[in-house]
Amino acid sequence: MPPVPLETKHHPSSVDLLLIKRLIAETSKQNLLQFLQHEFVNIGKSLAERLIGELGPEFSPKMVVKSLSDQQIVRINQLFRQAKFDDPTGDCLSPAGEYNLHLGIIKELHPDMVATYSGSAQVFEGHPFIVEAGVSVGGKDVKQGLNIFRFANRIPLLFEQGADVVTRTALKRINWGSYKINQTQDRIGVFVSVVSTKIPFKGTGKEYIGDDITEIATAVKSAIQQCCIQLKSKIMKKMQAREQQERKRNLSRYIPDATNALYDVLKHMSQSHASKRKRYSGEEAEILSKITANLITKETLKEKLAEHVEKVDYEMAMEYATQSGVTEEPREDIFIQTLDPENKFIEFQSPIFVFRLVC
């Protein structure tokens, strides 16, 4: 399950005039200093005193907060817009989580490969937000091209997709070809979830997120790109494996023809060697003698060529794995003996391990 969000107070950069008036009407604090400290996040005592000093001579830390006039409240709101505060944390948000997103995509689409990414908390207009993304390739009942799935606070957005920031980013700002993904022919699933204390919906229906919030648009693009980078690595490995299989298949296809041609040449050389028209020495003479004695036959050559193809394919695979950072260390059998040999135990054996249960 997603983490339970923590209750938080308003960030001073996120409030407007009406909200400040409501907080003043509902607060239990008596003076302005206490009000600023306890009704907003990231405002400590020293910062509150400095803010009150910047408000002007008509403000004081001990003044009754409920006695503030409309003009004074407007001045507080203006100062909140001008001042710089620490960014709020994302503890008050409850994103789905990269693990849940990954499982959900696999369950619904059954893709050939999938990558997910969950970004850190960012801020726009004093409101924290988190962007999570997932990109899949292939799958069941998935159309060719981009299939975009949008979520706001874990709720799916079903309408007005064309104007949404996710759609515009996926269509216009992502160079899919650079990640070895064909935008028109591959079956691509793009999942983006935006979680925030304030979703900047557009329109009366609140069915899409506007493309005019630079912070969110940048975060959406970055999240999709992170997924594409992961997929590119998987696609490259898959392409490499396919090329190796094709190369091995091509080499194996010519083994019979190569065997016949090689054996005919060796047979002719052995006949020349036997008639003393042309003498060979050393290793060559030994091989020709085996040909004459039928110790080396076509089947022998065919087996040796097949073994050589397997060896070359394995060596190239290991070279690729080494270049990709995948290494396989030599393994040794480890036998752990009980500290007390007098103990009785029940032994469970398998091809992989031996488990002894001490009684």
Rank of each mutant, 00 (worst) to 15 (best):
F159T: 11
Y320R: 11
F129K: 00
N42G: 00
I255T: 04
F345E: 12
K107M: 06
T214R: 07
T116D: 06
L6V: 13
L23N: 03
T259K: 00
E299I: 06
I76W: 04
L157P: 04
I334G: 01
I155K: 02
P3Y: 05
K311M: 12
E315C: 08
L19H: 06
I181E: 11
V142D: 03
A170V: 03
P5L: 01
P200Q: 06
K311E: 15
M236Y: 07
M63V: 09
Q37M: 15
Q244E: 10
T259A: 00
T197E: 12
K180G: 02
E286T: 15
Y179T: 05
Y314P: 00
N147L: 10
N175F: 09
G53P: 01
G203A: 06
S350D: 07
E125T: 05
Q72F: 07
I73L: 07
Q337I: 02
K21F: 09
C92Q: 07
T169M: 05
F335L: 10
V123N: 14
G189K: 03
L157E: 05
K29Y: 14
M63N: 02
G210D: 06
E108Y: 09
T259D: 00
K221C: 10
K84E: 08
E286Y: 08
E332W: 02
A261T: 08
V4Y: 05
Q225K: 14
I52R: 02
K66P: 07
V114I: 11
M236Q: 12
G203H: 09
H273N: 15
E307C: 09
L33F: 07
V135C: 04
F149G: 01
A121H: 08
M318Q: 15
T27M: 08
V192R: 06
R75T: 07
F124S: 11
A163I: 02
S350K: 04
K311A: 12
E243L: 12
L266I: 10
Y99H: 12
A133P: 02
L51E: 01
T292R: 14
R247M: 11
Q78D: 12
H38R: 11
A306I: 07
Q337S: 08
S46I: 14
E284M: 14
V354E: 04
I106S: 06
K232D: 07
T322V: 07
W176F: 14
L17V: 10
T27H: 06
L295R: 10
A241D: 14
S67Y: 06
H110D: 13
L288W: 10
L109V: 11
L157R: 04
L33S: 05
V142F: 00
K29A: 13
Q271T: 11
I106P: 00
K344N: 13
S13P: 00
E54F: 09
K344V: 03
N147G: 05
Q37C: 15
G138M: 08
H268G: 08
P128G: 07
K298Q: 13
T169H: 04
N182G: 04
R253H: 06
F151A: 00
